[in-house]
Structure formats: structure tokens, C-alpha cells
Write a protein that binds this DNA or RNA. Sequence first.
DNA 1: GCGCAGTTGACAACCCGTTAACAGGTCGTT
DNA 2: AACGACCTGTTAACGGGTTGTCAACTGCGC
Lengths: 224, 224
Amino acid sequence: MSRVLVVDDEPQIRRALSINLRARGYDVEVAQDGERALELAARKHPDVVVLDLGLPGIDGVDVIRGLRGWTQVPIVVLSVRDAEDDKVAALDAGADDFVTKPFGMDELLARLRAALRRTAPAEEDAVIDTADFTIDLAAKKVQRNGEEVRLTPTEWHLVEVLVRNRGRLVAQTQLLQEVWGPQYHDETNYLRVFMAQVRRKLEPEPAHPRYFITEPGMGDRFEP
Amino acid sequence: MSRVLVVDDEPQIRRALSINLRARGYDVEVAQDGERALELAARKHPDVVVLDLGLPGIDGVDVIRGLRGWTQVPIVVLSVRDAEDDKVAALDAGADDFVTKPFGMDELLARLRAALRRTAPAEEDAVIDTADFTIDLAAKKVQRNGEEVRLTPTEWHLVEVLVRNRGRLVAQTQLLQEVWGPQYHDETNYLRVFMAQVRRKLEPEPAHPRYFITEPGMGDRFEP
DNA sequence: GCGCAGTTGACAACCCGTTAACAGGTCGTT
DNA sequence: AACGACCTGTTAACGGGTTGTCAACTGCGC
């Protein structure tokens, strides 16, 4: 199920959210301050972030900026009532939604579902069919000639980003950051190696790719 | 600028929002009940909907469902405090965000910006069509006679600057600085070489350019 | 320790920006 | 009208950087 990163300095809130979210089937990571939040986000690639604005150390709004520098992951902010200015600043920094403390668990869960649904592919777009293979984004499966093709996690992640932007050119730095994390923005080696692996598994002629196209100097794209 | 559809049954709120939003440069449509909201949304295709939950006639949540049947337009819901159940129902029906009444105009504006920003990448389908070719700025693709034309990074960069300023004359120094960098302001050689390459790839008669025009001594411009 | 996945390095093939050289055209000057 | 200076258009070669590919290495989990 979906991975959630919870960022809050109050242990009892971390604990409450952790228990409640796990009970609903989410994978939960917790961080108690901004530094750890950014580091965990880079390592674990959560599907959604729940972030308390009132953090010790790095300010919550700066955490949002730090995340927005490299990822579009939805961010749900927790804030105290009457902190109107903070809310506006958070939204402008790129937060997706927020919940006022004290909050009901039902409301938070509803907002998490809403945030996740926004990034989830629309139902009808979840399956991409080509003449040579079929990609099911929801099920995370690829079929070729009726047989299932196994992709490693990184290979899949790469394919996913390209397919979600099908028809569009995706810059190398963007691909690297979305698949490997913010500090990998110039490890173009990885891209070459994994594009080659993906092509070997999916392209009819890996040496003359038809779907996973590299535009020299510009980036890569998936052509359906 | 962006088109906003405001749905509320209270005339003073419609009026206040209408004035404030227009003052910020939004195009505003108003509807006083659910039926008109659905009808206006279908006719005008707003970029974002501001919807009061407590409507006469069709329930606000049903309006959300009605919209979600055919569009992903972001919906910002207005609701009274303590209507927790309504909020959850609205979010699950597909609302994107909501604001509790009474609300500050700053907060509403911030949430509108956030909602618009979420769809911005998709919305920004800047596609320029001419009789001879099509330029898709978002996908970084150029088509000519149904076939894809490949531009090198520098060629693309040059085309992009010209197209974004379509119809306007762009000075040589400005082009050189935007495409090659600040220290290249007088390398007019580059401009000639690359304008020629772009013309060769896109113009029907490269020797008599119709789209990529050089105004001697002044600069260049793209004529759609 | 075995197997899988990700990481790293090496190298050839290729692509693209740079550069130079020259032809054609325009304009001002004589 | 003739001339030359200057700007523009066109082409081709060079060299450096990027890409595709392979294989060995590392680290982790079973």
C-alpha cells in the first residue's frame, strides 16, 4: 500500500499517527525534525508527506521548499488554528492541503486519500498498450507476448516516470531526481545503464528503440 | 488569466468573491445553485471551481460528483465549521481542498493559487500551430507533415525563446544571451548558423523564410 | 555463501556545438 | 553607376562531449 512520511516533533502525535495509519494498511515512516524528514524523503520516496509546520530546527515551510526542489510528492500540512499566515506561506511554498490541529483522524485520513488520489493515474489511463507490450501502472506489471516481464524496483520506477509523462520529453536531471533522489541529479551513468536494461527487456530491437527514446542532450521520453 | 467558477447561494458572498477575484485578474463566472453550476461548468470549462456546500436544490456533494463525471477541474469547497462529516464526504467525492467559513480572502486566494498550480503543468499545453508545422512547448516536440522533427538542444532553445515571444521582435543580443549565456552577446555567428539550421528543418522554403524572420540589424522574430 | 540489484569504470561510436571560409545582398558613399 | 563595408545565409570539417554497451565489483537479504 501507500507509503506515508509523518513529520512531527511531538512523540505522542507521531505515535498516534503511526498506529492509526499502519492499522489502515499504510507503510509509515516517521521523522522528528526537518533534517531527518528531508533525508528520509530522499531515501524512501514516500507517496505522501504529513508535515507539522511547528518544527524545531528547520522551519516547516523550508522543508516544503526542500521537497519541492526535486519532487512533486503531495504534502499535507498540520498546523494550529489561527496561524493563518503560516498556512498561506505553506500553500505558496507548494503544500497541497492542510489540517488544523486538533484534528479528527477521519478528516486526516480523508485528506490523505484525496492527496493520494490526485497523483494516482485516472482509472482508464492506468493501462498502456503498445504493439509489443502492456504496462499496468496500477498493478505495477508489464506483459510482453502474453508473458509477464519482471522489472527490478529501479527499472520499474524509471518506466513509471516515463510512462506517466508519455509523449513528453523528460529532462535527465528530472528523471534522476525522481527515480534516485535529489543528490543524483548528475549521475547520468545510471540513466544510461537502466535505460539500456529497460530496452533489453521491453524493446523488440533494443539497439533501435521505438518506445524508450533518448533525445541526445535533452532527455528521454516514452512514445506510446 | 485563469477562469474561476464561483457557486454560492448567498448574493453577498458571490458579490464579494466576484469583486475580489476580478481585482486579481481572474475571469469570474458565478452560479447561485447546483444546476446552473453544472451547466456553466460544462459551457465555460473553468480552470477552478469554488463551491459552497450548503446549496438549495442539488446538494453540494452531488455537484462535485456531477463535475467529476467528466472533468478533473480542481474544486475548492466552502463549508461551515463543525460540518466535519460534510467535509469528509466532499473530499471523498473528489473535492481538492476546502476553506472554512468565515474565511479570509488571503487564505482563499492562496488555496486557489495552490489548486491552479497543481493542474498548471497539464494546462500549460502551449501548442503553437502553423500551416506547416506544430510546436509543443511542454512536450518539447515539433511535428511537420505528421512526422516528428528532431531539434538539437541549442536549436530547440532558440526556437523556444522565439516562440514564447511570438510576433515580437527579439534583439540579437537578447537571443544570444538567453540561448548561449551572458558572455556570448556578440557572437552573431552562432545566430546565423542556428537560424539557418532551424529554417532548414522547419521552413517550407528555407531560402525564403516565412516563420523565422530576421530583421536586418535588429533581431529576429517568429511569425505564427 | 549465494543470488539479485545497484553501482562503477572503460571504451568505441556517435552527435552536436564550434569555427572558419565564402557567397549573396543591402546600403551608404563616392 | 561603381565601389566597398557590413551583415546575412550556407556549407563543411574538427574536436570534445554524450551515449550505448559490456563487464566487473559491491552490498544486501535469504
